[in-house]
Amino acid sequence: MTAATIKGSRLGSTRLTAETRAQITIRVSKEIARTEAEIRKTKTARLKAARMEMLAREPEPASAKGRAADDSKRSGS
């Protein structure tokens, strides 16, 4: 490449204005927020499914009557 070609290519570039930079920043920040929200939503769904599966595998809890009797014995001592 010659020096004239390099100078010519520099003159052809456009300079970004402040408004254009602001638009780019807004677009990128919205894209980042959208991506993070999607990741968060996916993670929440995965954790909820795992919790539901875990709860389905657990046996039924003991009756509330038996637990109340245990609590009253402890507080009376």
Rank of each mutant, 00 (worst) to 15 (best):
E19D: 11
L55M: 15
M1K: 05
R46P: 01
S9Y: 08
E60M: 08
K7I: 13
S9E: 13
T20K: 13
R40G: 00
S63M: 08
E60P: 03
S63R: 06
I32F: 11
R51H: 07
A56W: 06
A18D: 15
A64S: 05
S72W: 08
M1A: 12
A37C: 04
T20N: 08
G76I: 05
S75T: 09
L55H: 14
A68Y: 02
S63H: 06
I26R: 02
T2Y: 04
S9M: 14
S13K: 14
T5N: 10
R67V: 15
A64P: 02
A49G: 04
A4F: 13
G76Y: 04
T2A: 08
A62P: 07
S77F: 03
K65W: 02
K43D: 12
A50S: 05
D70I: 14
K73V: 14
S13D: 04
G66M: 07
A22N: 04
A37R: 13
T17S: 15
T25M: 00
S29K: 05
T5E: 15
R15I: 06
A69V: 14
R34W: 03
P61D: 09
R10N: 10
R74D: 02
T25G: 01
T2W: 04
R27N: 04
A33C: 02
A4E: 15
G76C: 03
T44W: 03
A69Q: 12
A4W: 12
G12H: 11
E36C: 00
R57N: 12
A33H: 04
E31A: 12
E31H: 04
P59T: 13
T25R: 04
K7N: 15
R21C: 10
R57A: 15
T25H: 01
A45P: 01
S72N: 07
I26P: 01
R21P: 00
S77V: 03
R57L: 11
A62M: 10
E36G: 00
R51P: 00
M1Y: 06
E58G: 02
A50N: 04
E19H: 04
A3P: 01
T14R: 14
S29A: 10
L11K: 13
A49Q: 07
M54K: 12
R21E: 12
M1W: 05
K41D: 06
I6V: 14
S75K: 09
T2L: 08
P61Q: 08
A18Y: 05
L16N: 10
A50M: 06
R10Y: 07
I32A: 13
A45Y: 03
I26A: 04
T20H: 08
G76E: 13
S75Q: 06
E53P: 00
T5R: 11
V28L: 07
S9F: 10
M52P: 00
A33V: 03
A68Q: 10
P59D: 13
A69Y: 08
S9H: 10
R34D: 07
I39M: 09
R27H: 02
T20V: 08
K48C: 02
V28E: 10
K73G: 02
L47V: 05
D70V: 14
D70H: 09
R34I: 02
R67D: 06
